[in-house]
Amino acid sequence: MLRNTTTAYGWVAILLHWLMALTIFGMFGLGLYMVELTYYDAWYKGSLDLHKSIGILLLGLLFIRTLWRCININPDSADEHASKFELKSAHLVHLGLYLLMFTLMMSGYLISTADGRGINVFEVFTVPAIPFAVDNQEDIAGQIHEILAWALIVLAGIHGLAAIKHHFINKNNTLVRMLKVKK
């Protein structure tokens, strides 16, 4: 089952969800590692290039994921006892996750292209820089990027804890349906 149904997520949604989640947590870890490096560390440039390349690929995946979400139905809530507040909160958290991912990736793009050079993605293609920059763009975008990265990790953690709560306390299949496709 590739597409979502009213009761389950399809393989495409599940694959995109977990691929992005694991990559984002990996990128967060790489980012924490990178900020501790100095210009003279052996992996300084390599870690930056890797972070930028993966970031651009993640942005592409985010567009694909958003498109897939728009052309698919969303499964109904797995918790038939969910209050309107819970349903609205879940919707807002998902919206927040998408907005945070997009703005985080765009701030990374603005950091990387502040000097007017594009982003070389794994030596395969280059994403061009915008033809203008603002004063202190790299520093401003860097501060925003750090704040958004922490906000995304915190919100993703809340999202994960809510799924675990639904599984163990509410005893519904909210978590399970994002782990496997219903046959």
Rank of each mutant, 00 (worst) to 15 (best):
His17Leu: 11
Ser107His: 11
Leu148Ala: 13
Leu161Lys: 12
Leu16Asp: 05
Phe85Gly: 15
Glu123His: 02
Glu80Leu: 08
Leu152Thr: 14
Leu48His: 14
Leu15His: 07
Asp49Trp: 09
Tyr39Pro: 09
Tyr40Arg: 15
Lys183Leu: 08
Ser77Lys: 15
Tyr44Ala: 04
Leu30Ile: 04
His94Arg: 01
Met106Asn: 00
Phe28His: 14
Asn4Gln: 06
Arg65Gln: 08
Gly116Asn: 09
Ile140Gln: 00
Lys183Thr: 04
Gly118Met: 12
Thr5Val: 02
Leu2Arg: 14
Leu2Glu: 09
Ala156Gly: 07
Asp139Gln: 05
Tyr33Glu: 09
Asp139Ser: 04
Ser53Met: 02
His145Tyr: 12
Leu22Met: 10
His51Tyr: 12
Leu57Lys: 02
Thr7Gly: 00
Pro75His: 07
Val93Arg: 02
Thr174Met: 01
Leu22Tyr: 10
Asn136Trp: 01
Met1Leu: 10
His167Leu: 14
Asn120Val: 05
Leu32Ile: 01
Leu58Val: 14
Thr113Gly: 12
Glu86Arg: 02
Lys45Pro: 03
His51Cys: 07
Ile56Gly: 07
Lys171Arg: 10
Asp115Met: 15
Ile54Tyr: 14
Val35Glu: 07
Lys171Ala: 10
Lys52Asp: 08
Leu62Gly: 05
Met27Pro: 02
His17Phe: 12
Ser53Leu: 02
Ser47Pro: 04
His17Trp: 11
Val35Gly: 01
Lys52Ala: 11
Leu32Cys: 01
Ile56Arg: 05
Thr66Met: 11
Asn4Pro: 03
Leu58Tyr: 10
Phe28Met: 13
Phe85Trp: 15
Pro128Val: 07
Trp150Ile: 01
Met105Lys: 01
Ile144Gly: 07
Phe132Glu: 11
Leu2Lys: 15
Val134Asp: 14
Val93Trp: 02
Ala133Glu: 03
Ile71Phe: 08
Ile169Gln: 02
Ala141Asn: 01
Met106Phe: 09
Glu123Thr: 01
Leu161Tyr: 08
Ala114Asn: 06
Leu19Thr: 15
Trp68Gly: 14
Leu50Asn: 03
Ile73Cys: 06
Leu97Pro: 01
Gln137Gly: 03
Leu37Ala: 01
Leu175Phe: 09
Gly31Arg: 05
Asn173Pro: 03
Ser47His: 07
Phe102Lys: 10
Leu100Arg: 08
Ile119Phe: 07
His17Ala: 11
Leu179His: 00
Trp11Gly: 03
Phe25Tyr: 14
Leu179Thr: 02
Val35Asn: 04
Met178Arg: 03
Leu67Trp: 12
Ala8Arg: 12
Leu15Tyr: 06
Ser107Ile: 12
Ile73Gly: 05
Ile71Glu: 09
Ile164Trp: 00
Ile164Pro: 03
Ile140Val: 10
Asp79Phe: 10
Asp76Glu: 11
Gly26Ala: 09
Leu37Asp: 06
Ala90Asp: 02
Gly29Gln: 10
Asn4Trp: 04
Val124Tyr: 04
Ala149Leu: 15
Leu19Trp: 10
Ala21Val: 13
Asp79Gln: 10
Phe102Met: 14
His94Ser: 04
Ala114Gly: 04
Asn4Leu: 06
Lys165Cys: 10
Tyr44Pro: 02
Cys70Asp: 07
His159Phe: 01
Met105Asp: 02
Met106Ala: 07
Leu99Thr: 00
Tyr39Leu: 14
His81Lys: 15
Ala156Cys: 06
His51Thr: 08
Tyr39Thr: 13
Ala42Thr: 13
Asn72Cys: 06
Val35Ser: 05
Lys182Gln: 10
Gly96Lys: 03
Phe102Tyr: 12
